[in-house]
Write a protein that binds this DNA or RNA. Structure first.
Lengths: 193, 193
DNA sequence: CTGGCACTGAAACAGTCGTTTCAGTAGCGA
DNA sequence: TCGCTACTGAAACGACTGTTTCAGTGCCAG
C-alpha cells in the first residue's frame, strides 16, 4: 500500500474523478476506464489513494462537500421556511447529478454495511436531522413532537426528491412540497412568534 | 441464447434466487455464488433465464409481485386513511428486505437507463401515484390540487421509508408520518363527506 | 553533482465475470 | 425402441477486475 495523504496532484485527480463519477455513478466504477477519462493511469490512482476503496471514500467525502454548501446557507428559527429553501436547492437542475449520486450511495449503504459505503445512510439521516433541528425554534427542538416534525419535513423533502429524480416533473413535486409544508405550518407549533 | 419461458424448475429456482437476493442485494449479484447458494449451476440459470439480465428482470418482476399484495388491500375514498395503512405495511419488519431491494433498484435505474433496471424508478412512481389516485375521492382525482396531494402523500411515505430503513427507528418515523397525514387531512379537501 | 521525493508507464498477477461448447442423463409419448 | 423434451455437469473462452512489480522520469534541496 502506498500513500493516501493530500497532494496537489491528488486534489486535481480527485476533482476530475468526481466529475466523471457524477456522470457514471459509483457502483460500476472501474479504475481503468476512470483513469483513461481523467488522463491518468490505474497505477497513479492507486498510488495517490491507496486503494480503490480509498478512492471511493475520498469521492464520497467530496460529494458531501457539495452538500455542506447547502447546509451553510439555511436560515434558522422557522422550520418550514428553511425547508422551502432546502427544496429550492434540491430541485435546482444543477444539483441533480450530486443528488443522484447521493441516492446511489444511500441505497448501497443499506445493503453493504461494510466497505467505503459503511454508515452513509445513517450518517446522512443524522446530519440532515441536525440541520433541521437547528432551524427549529429552541423551545421546540428537544420535545418529542419537535423530533417528529423535523422527521416529517425531512421525509417530505427526500420523498419528493426521489420523485423528482425519477420523473423530472419539477412543477408537480414542487407543488406537493409547498402544499405539504403549508399544511404543516398551519397545524403545529413550527414557529415561535 | 436458450429458452426463457416458464417451467416448474424455473419457478423453483426463481423463488430460491429471490430469497438469496433479498439477503445479498441485486447490485453485486454473481451467477456462480448464487448458483452455489440455491443448489444449481451457472449453466442451468443461463439455460432457464436466457442471460443474467433475464434473471435480474425476472427477479424484479418477482419483487413487484410482493408489492402487489399491498396494492390489492388498500381501501378507497380516503387518501390519508389509505396512506396510513400503506405505512403500516411499509413499516412492518417482515417487509424490510423487499423494500431495501426496492430502493436499490430505484437508485440503480436512475443511473443506468439501460439494462434490466430501465425505467424502474419512473414506473414505480407511476404505479404508486395511480394507487393513491384510486384512493382519492373521484371529484378530487383529476384536479391539479389532487395530483399535488397524492404526490405529497407519496413523498411522505417514501421519505419516511428511507429514514426507517437507515435508522430502524420505527417510533420516530411512524410519529412523523402520522403527524404529517393529520396535518394534511386538516388542511385540504382530502375526503368528500 | 547527489540524493531523495513525487509521480508515472508497462506489464504482469491471480482472480472473477458472463457466456459458450460439448457432452451427456432422465423421463415420457408413440 | 425411437426420438423428443427438459434439464444438467465440466470445462473452457475472452474480457475484465484490483493490485503489484519493476523500472524509470523530472525536479528541487543540500
Amino acid at each position: 500500500m502506498e500513500a493516501a495523504k493530500a497532494s496537489p496532484r491528488r486534489e486535481e485527480l480527485l476533482e476530475a474523478a468526481y466529475r466523471y463519477v457524477l456522470d457514471h455513478g459509483l457502483g460500476d466504477l472501474s479504475l481503468r476506464p476512470l483513469a483513461a477519462a481523467v488522463g491518468s493511469s490505474p497505477r497513479v490512482l492507486l498510488y495517490l489513494f491507496g486503494s480503490k476503496d480509498g478512492l471511493v471514500r475520498a469521492l464520497l467525502i467530496r460529494a458531501r462537500a457539495d452538500e455542506r454548501e447547502l447546509l451553510r446557507q439555511t436560515p434558522t428559527g422557522d422550520l418550514t421556511e428553511a425547508a422551502g429553501l432546502i427544496w429550492d436547492w434540491l430541485a435546482a437542475p444543477a444539483h441533480r447529478a450530486v443528488l443522484t449520486l447521493w441516492v446511489e450511495a444511500y441505497a448501497r449503504s443499506l445493503i453493504e454495511p461494510d466497505g467505503p459505503w459503511a454508515g452513509f445512510a445513517r450518517d446522512s439521516v443524522r446530519e440532515w436531522l441536525a440541520l433541521l433541528a437547528s432551524a427549529q425554534p429552541p423551545g421546540d427542538r428537544d420535545t418529542e413532537g419537535g423530533a417528529a416534525r423535523r422527521t416529517a419535513v425531512l421525509a417530505v423533502l427526500r420523498g419528493a426528491l426521489l420523485d423528482l429524480l425519477a420523473t423530472g416533473d419539477t412543477a408537480r413535486t414542487t407543488a406537493a412540497v409547498r402544499h405539504q409544508l403549508a399544511a404543516l405550518a398551519g397545524s403545529a407549533p413550527l414557529r415561535r412568534p
